[in-house]
Design a binder for these strands. Structure first.
Length: 224
DNA sequence: GCCCAGGTGGGTA
DNA sequence: TACCCACATGGG
């Protein structure tokens, strides 16, 4: 039975956490590896990204200095499993040029900016859109900026909390206004939404039986 | 053989 | 603003 009251965002988080446990995204990776991963993961399964990261590491290219100097075609060949590899090689180059020119190649210099300014600068880089910018701010710089992705939208829509047509900015604002600005919380909440999305909201077909959010889900309520 | 992954940018109306 | 397309691998 679905409740008449719209579920609040913290209750959803708690439900997901109880069902899946902490996700531990990007454990033990340094900030640079996280940024490279954030760019490479665009529209790709994470498993493919891991292969590419391993290849870059083996070629000693997983640091700003050597990666900036590496030929584009060499980088592209190494990140081949991540689809759109030529485009992504250029995107990595764009970020590295930006980092060199704007911040002397120092991530700590970039990370010293306030969240809004850092986000703004990142968005000016070719290949870094809103989701990637927020992923970098949150997971690499470890500052609170909620990441919205396709799963987040789909899940919120099924819960009856949004129409689905909201802008990225509107959804991000919704989360940032309704839950505490806590890096750990943002980190795990986004990861949990992705995890839940993969398990339950991959296709259009409803999978409400056994769903950890079924008692909050508008879709479940209307299909029973 | 088909679908779709932890998106973004560019072009057109 | 709102669509549409290019990008172009690999696992289920």
């Amino acid at each position: 039975m679905g409740s008449r009251m719209p579920p609040d965002l913290l209750a959803i988080y708690k439900g997901l956490l109880a069902a899946y446990g902490q996700q531990h995204w990007w454990p033990g990776s340094g900030p640079f590896e996280i940024i490279v991963g954030a760019i490479l993961t665009q529209q790709v399964a994470w498993k493919s990204v891991e292969k590419a990261l391993a290849a870059l590491k083996a070629a000693d290219l997983l640091n700003p200095e050597t990666l900036l100097c590496a030929p584009l075609d060499e980088v592209a060949a190494l990140i081949r499993p991540t689809i759109y590899y030529n485009e992504k090689a250029k995107k990595l180059r764009s970020f590295l040029s930006f980092l060199q020119e704007r911040h002397h190649g120092e991530l700590s210099d970039l990370f010293a900016l306030p969240v809004a300014a850092m986000r703004e600068e990142l968005l000016s880089v070719h290949g870094i859109g809103e989701e990637t910018a927020d992923s970098i701010v949150l997971y690499a710089a470890e500052k609170p900026s909620f990441v919205i992705d396709a799963y987040t939208r789909r899940i919120m829509q099924r819960l009856g909390l949004i129409s689905g047509k909201e802008s990225y900015a509107a959804l991000r604002a919704l989360f940032m206004e309704k839950i505490p600005r806590d890096v750990k919380l943002y980190n795990d909440y986004h990861a949990l939404l992705v995890r839940h999305g993969k398990d339950r909201c991959r296709s259009r077909a409803p999978l409400c039986s056994g769903c950890p959010l079924s008692d909050m889900c508008a879709y479940a309520a209307t299909t029973k």
